[in-house]
Nucleic acid binder design. Structure first.
Length: 360
DNA sequence: CGACGTGTAAC
DNA sequence: CCTTTTACACGTCG
């Protein structure tokens, strides 16, 4: 049977939650910020609501720039409160999971649902489920969502983006080619800045252009694998299943108060990040084999170093190995200073039951 | 093949 | 002026 896949995207999630939490800011432009702590206003915009976007204030923008635009206007700036957002997100994900065969959560505000079995492959039933989910999100959480329905994840994702906010876009099998036709390649999920530039240089602007470009010629530029992928995207072909994701890595990264190559200062950061990581290790009940450090220097160049050890769940291993890797980095890069620093664990193993020392 | 490091992408 | 977290593909090396 042809699949029916839904993509649900919560509209300007963080900003909407803050508007609900504080009615005094409802209807105003709202900007949610990640402050880095370097100076009063350093950091970047995480999300903004549609009123703020109308001024050109969008995700990723430095807070200073956003404030410059907002000067003299009644714009609300708030810091992110991830714990709160996560709590609400969980409730919404739970209710969506109940309305699907399987669900794949992509991020805090986004998920794919396979509703093929539930609907018996009937599109009208699928539309009813989409409406029901939107209604529940609205009545229970006072939020809106944009939903896309199609025969695969890729097209469902683009469909949910097509009408925003509070949209519902249905793209049936026979409508896919037409739906994608004049879509700029940059709108195709998985095609980012670099690939868009490379495609534009070949004279390819739209999905149609891409589909008409020879696979052989694409292969010469992108290699066999990526060329195939690009070609499939241009035709809206995607066989990837909707399946729950298992975490493959956990990382923590932070901005240093000032650029530095002082070992001891960065040690402090390792300890700080390690505390956070420890909580997450315990909460996720996870053990790991690989520890990495992530360094971002003054020029914003990212480097990683890692070490693999016998399986463990001890935070002290993370700390000690991070220190060794940092020393290695500093030795190899004697004239560089760090702006940001992070730690990561990977090669994860999740255990059902809580393991205590008694188990050994 | 597994480990390691980089680049691309999305949120 | 420049945040955070995760995934995955690919090249290289031993």
């Amino acid at each position: 049977m042809k699949r029916i896949i839904m993509h649900v995207d919560l509209d300007s999630f963080y900003a909407s939650l803050e508007e609900n939490r504080d009615p005094a800011i409802k209807g105003k432009p709202v900007v949610i910020c990640v402050y880095s702590g370097r100076s009063e206003e350093s950091g970047a915009v995480s999300t903004s609501n549609y009123k703020a976007r109308a001024f050109g204030i969008k995700a990723g923008m430095p807070i200073v720039i956003a404030k410059r635009i907002a000067k003299g206007k009644d714009v609300v700036f708030l810091p992110v409160d991830m714990d709160y957002y996560r709590e609400i997100s969980e409730r919404i994900m739970d209710l969506m999971e109940e309305e699907s065969d399987t669900m794949e959560q992509v991020s805090i505000d986004e998920a794919y649902l396979d509703v093929t079995e539930l609907t018996d492959g009937n599109w009208d039933k699928a539309i009813e489920i989409a409406k029901s989910i939107k209604e529940k999100i609205s009545s229970q959480e006072e939020l809106t969502a944009s939903v896309g329905l199609s025969t695969n994840k890729f097209v469902a994702k683009i469909a949910s983006d097509f009408q925003k906010p509070n949209g519902l876009t249905v793209v049936k099998e026979e409508e896919i080619i037409n739906f994608l036709k004049y879509m700029p390649v940059s709108k195709l999920h998985g095609i980012g800045e670099k690939t868009t530039k490379a495609l534009n240089d070949l004279g390819i602007q739209t999905a149609k252009d891409l589909s008409e470009y020879g696979l052989k010629e694409l292969e010469e530029v992108f290699g066999k694998n990526k060329a195939r992928l690009l070609h499939n995207k241009s035709l809206g072909i995607d066989d990837s299943p909707v399946e729950p994701r298992e975490k493959k890595q956990l990382s923590r990264i932070g901005t240093l108060k000032e650029d530095t190559n002082d070992q001891n200062v960065i040690y402090e950061k390792i300890i700080e990040l390690g505390k956070d990581m420890e909580i997450r290790i315990l909460k996720n009940n996870v053990s790991f084999r690989t520890v990495s450090i992530i360094t971002i220097d003054t020029e914003l160049k990212t480097q990683t170093k890692s070490d693999t050890i016998p399986q463990t769940r001890e935070i002290q291993k993370v700390i000690n190995i991070s220190k060794v890797l940092l020393e290695k980095y500093l030795k190899e890069n004697p004239d560089k200073k760090l702006r940001r620093f992070g730690i990561r664990i990977s090669n994860l193993e999740f255990s059902k039951a809580q393991k205590t020392l008694d188990d050994f």
